[in-house]
Amino acid sequence: MAAELTAHHRRLAQQKREAITSAATDLFLDRGYDGTSLARIAEAAEVSKSTLFKQFPTKAALFEAIVTESWQRDAGDTAARPPAGDLRAGLTAIGHRYAELIGQPRMAGLFRIVIAELPRFPELGRMQFQLGKMPYFASVQRYLESEREAGNADVPDAESAANQFLGMIANYVLWPRMLLTGWDPAAADVRNAVEEAVHTMLARHAPHSPA
């Protein structure tokens, strides 16, 4: 019984946490980071102030959690970083997962918040870069390094290759959304963008047998 109560309390706490981060993201977009108070977030999330402050003592801590959770929502998936052995399959899996991640409205909203508030709150940009983008890109870099070590890829600079690969996908899936209000590419077009990025990577980094 005690274990069931503990599990129930954990579920409730997680539901409240998700309600808080969702409400905060919406309010940051609507009112700006500076124009949104923790009290207003608690009201929108339908939780008490004490519940919010217990999980997030400051607005910066709340934004940090939004960034981390947005970028790491598939971190528990064992397929998040494919094993070395098949460069095409690995890049395809990573590419589709990345396209799905950055294609979510939540992620586009996060970028809009950072871009809008960057002049007044440069720490938001540092959080997005250091806690979100860089760890994610580093995981792709490590995958490419593992393929290189296994002899399945010719990647002299895995960091640069990871940036190029993910950049090709983001250039189609994410960045137009920052400028075009109606940008919503079809699933088939997103798949094609990923496949083209994989094809480019294979042309550049797949090991070639000697003639």
Rank of each mutant, 00 (worst) to 15 (best):
A2D: 14
A193V: 12
V190W: 04
R81F: 06
G85P: 10
L62R: 01
A150P: 09
F137E: 13
D77S: 10
V173Y: 08
G90M: 08
P176Q: 10
P156T: 05
P122S: 02
K16E: 14
A99R: 03
L5E: 15
R204C: 01
W71C: 00
A2Y: 08
R177A: 14
P135Y: 02
F56K: 07
L166Q: 08
A80Q: 15
M201K: 00
E117T: 03
D74E: 13
G109V: 03
L62E: 06
L87S: 08
I113Q: 02
P82I: 11
Q72C: 01
F129V: 01
S48Y: 07
G109I: 03
E100L: 05
T78I: 12
F56H: 05
S50D: 10
F63A: 01
R106L: 13
V67W: 09
F63E: 09
A84D: 13
Q141S: 10
E159A: 09
A60G: 11
R177P: 01
A42Q: 13
T92D: 15
P135C: 02
Y136R: 08
T25K: 04
Y98R: 02
L38F: 02
P207I: 05
P57R: 08
N152P: 04
N171C: 10
A23T: 08
W183Y: 14
R81L: 06
A158I: 06
R88P: 02
D189T: 09
